[in-house]
Lab assay of single mutants.
Amino acid sequence: NQASVVANQLIPISTALTLVMMRSEVVTPVGIPAEDIPRLVSMTVNRAVPLGTTLMPDMVKGYA
């Protein structure tokens, strides 16, 4: 089972991601792979991401 990136807090729309905002967790459905966390830092989300939500590729500008 692959770990995915999960929001560690509410991430408001257009917020630049930082390490403290994300954690890795094995979830269903599978989202962005946890090993991509370093790549996600400073990318922005294009929607509000509630606490505990799995980050999907279409939620992060420039990721997909």
Rank of each mutant, 00 (worst) to 15 (best):
N8M: 06
A48F: 10
S42G: 14
T54R: 02
P12I: 04
I32V: 06
K61E: 14
L51V: 12
Y63V: 04
D58W: 11
T44I: 12
A64I: 14
M59K: 01
D36L: 10
N46M: 11
R39M: 11
T28D: 15
T15N: 04
L17I: 08
V27A: 06
V45Q: 02
A16D: 06
G52S: 05
P38G: 11
P33H: 07
V26S: 10
M59F: 14
M59W: 12
V5A: 13
V27Q: 05
L10P: 13
I13T: 15
S14F: 11
T53E: 07
A16V: 11
P50N: 11
A3V: 06
L51P: 10
P57L: 04
S4F: 03
K61H: 10
V27H: 03
S24T: 13
D58K: 08
T54W: 03
L19A: 10
G62L: 06
P50K: 14
N46D: 09
A7I: 04
V20F: 13
P57Q: 07
A48N: 14
S24F: 05
A7C: 04
R39T: 11
A3R: 06
V6Q: 01
L40P: 00
V30T: 10
L51F: 11
E35I: 10
T54N: 02
V45G: 01
V49P: 03
T18C: 04
V6P: 01
M22S: 01
G62H: 10
N1R: 04
S14R: 11
P29K: 06
V45C: 06
V20T: 14
V49D: 01
L40G: 00
L17N: 02
L19P: 09
P12G: 06
S42M: 15
M43V: 04
N8Y: 03
P57W: 06
A64M: 13
V49N: 01
L55D: 01
A7W: 03
N8S: 14
V27R: 09
I32F: 02
A7Y: 03
V5F: 03
L55W: 02
T44S: 11
P33V: 08
L17C: 03
V20W: 12
D58N: 13
L40Y: 02
T53W: 13
Y63E: 03
V6F: 00
A3N: 08
I11F: 03
I11L: 09
L17T: 00
S24M: 08
T53G: 11
G62S: 12
E25L: 11
N1H: 12
T18K: 11
P33C: 10
L51Y: 13
V26E: 15
S42H: 13
M56S: 07
D36H: 12
A48C: 11
P50V: 06
P38S: 12
G52Y: 04
A16C: 08
V30I: 14
L55H: 01
I13K: 15
A64F: 05
V30L: 13
V5W: 02
M56Y: 09
V26F: 12
I37E: 00
T53Q: 12
S4A: 03
V60I: 13
A34M: 10
L19N: 07
T28M: 10
R23I: 09
N8I: 05
T15S: 13
P12F: 04
M56Q: 13
S4Q: 01
R39C: 13
V5Y: 02
A34Q: 06
P29L: 04
A3F: 09
V49W: 03
D58Q: 09
